[in-house]
C-alpha cells in the first residue's frame, strides 16, 4: 500500500493517534464548556486530569476499589474538588481581567502538582488494564482496553454535545453563555450554574484521567505536558466551540499518529505547526463562525 510501511505499523499508529485524540477531545471539550460560560481558561485542567488518574490509582491500591468503580467515583471527587476551587480562587476574581483567572488556575497547577509529586515522587505508577487481551483484526491487533477508551470517549463527547445542543439544561447553558445577567433576571441561580458547570468540566478532566491510568503511567507531570497540547487544540478548533473542540481533538490525534509513521521526528511538533498555520490562515479557528457554543 505505502512503500516500505507495513499496514500493521500504519494502523497501529492511527489507533494510538485515535487514543491520544480521545483524550485531546475530552479535555478540550471540558475546557471549551468552562470557557464558554465563564471566560476562564482553566489551566488546571491537566492537573485535574492527573488527579483523576491518581484517585483511580489510590482507590485501587488503598481501598481495593476496581477500575469500574473508580470510573464513577474519581470524576465525582475531582468535580467536587473543582467546586471548591471555583469558590475559593475563581469567584473572588470573577470580575477581573480574564488573564487573572488563567494565572490563578495556573498557580493551582503548581500547588497540585507539587503536592502530588511530594507525596508520590516523580516516577510513574503502574495501573493494570481492567480489560486485558484483545482481538486480532487481521491487519492489526486491537487491545480491548484501547477499543473501550475510543468508544467510551466518543459516547461521552457526543453525549455532552447533545446535552448542550438539544436539552433544556443545555439551553440554559447556551443562554447564559450569551447573556448571563438576562438568564439570571429570569430567576435562575446563575452563580450556582457557573459553579456546577465548572465542576462538570473538571469532572470530565477527572474522567479522562481514569481512562488514561491503564494506558499511560500515572505520574504527576502527565497533565501539564498534555495541557499545552490541549491549548493548541483549542486554539485550532476555536475557543469555546464545543463541536470544534471534539472534532479537532480526534483529528489532531490521528494526524499526530500518521506523522509518527511518515516522519517520526516531527511527531511532537506537528500539532504546533498546525496551530501556527491555522493562526495564519484561519485567524478565528477552524470551526468558529460566531461567538458562543456551537
Amino acid at each position: 500500500m505505502f512503500d516500505g510501511i507495513s499496514t500493521q505499523l500504519l494502523f497501529g499508529q492511527v489507533l494510538i493517534g485515535l487514543i491520544n485524540g480521545s483524550f485531546y477531545a475530552m479535555l478540550s471539550l471540558g475546557l471549551a464548556i468552562i470557557f464558554g460560560l465563564m471566560s476562564v481558561v482553566n489551566f488546571a485542567h491537566g492537573a485535574q486530569y492527573m488527579l483523576g488518574a491518581f484517585i483511580a490509582w489510590g482507590l485501587l491500591n488503598y481501598l481495593g476499589v476496581p477500575y469500574w468503580g473508580a470510573l464513577f467515583i474519581a470524576p465525582v471527587v475531582v468535580g467536587a474538588f473543582g467546586l471548591v476551587m471555583e469558590r475559593l480562587i475563581l469567584r473572588p476574581i470573577q470580575n477581573l481581567d480574564h488573564l487573572y483567572s488563567l494565572l490563578a488556575t495556573f498557580a493551582a497547577v503548581l500547588i497540585i502538582e507539587g503536592l502530588v509529586r511530594q507525596e508520590f515522587g516523580s516516577t510513574g505508577l503502574p495501573y493494570n488494564s481492567p480489560l486485558p487481551g484483545g482481538v486480532n483484526l487481521g491487519f492489526m491487533f486491537m487491545p480491548w482496553y484501547r477499543l473501550w477508551v475510543v468508544v467510551f470517549s466518543i459516547v461521552v463527547c457526543f453525549g455532552t454535545y447533545i446535552l448542550i445542543e438539544h436539552t433544556k439544561l443545555g439551553a440554559y447553558l447556551r443562554a447564559a453563555n450569551e447573556r448571563p445577567e438576562i438568564v439570571e433576571s429570569f430567576g435562575i441561580n446563575v452563580p450556582r450554574m457557573i459553579s456546577l458547570t465548572y465542576a462538570f468540566g473538571v469532572g470530565l478532566a477527572g474522567l479522562g484521567g481514569v481512562l488514561a491510568a491503564p494506558i499511560y503511567q500515572v505520574s504527576p507531570s502527565m497533565g501539564s505536558n498534555l495541557m499545552i497540547v490541549i491549548f493548541a487544540v483549542v486554539v485550532i478548533g476555536g475557543m469555546g466551540s464545543i463541536l470544534g473542540a471534539i472534532l479537532t481533538g480526534y483529528l489532531i490525534g490521528i494526524v499526530e499518529g500518521l506523522t509518527k509513521v511518515f516522519y517520526p521526528e516531527a511527531a511532537n511538533l506537528v500539532i504546533f505547526v498546525i496551530m501556527i498555520f491555522a493562526l495564519i490562515l484561519r485567524p478565528n479557528g477552524l470551526f468558529s463562525g460566531k461567538e458562543g457554543y456551537k
Partner: peptide, 15 residues
C-alpha cells in the same frame, strides 16, 4: 485577544 495570546505563546514555546 489577551487570553488566546497567552495560550498561543505557551504553545509556540513548547514547539
Amino acid at each position: 485577544s489577551g487570553i488566546q495570546f497567552a495560550m498561543i505563546t505557551l504553545a509556540i514555546s513548547q514547539f
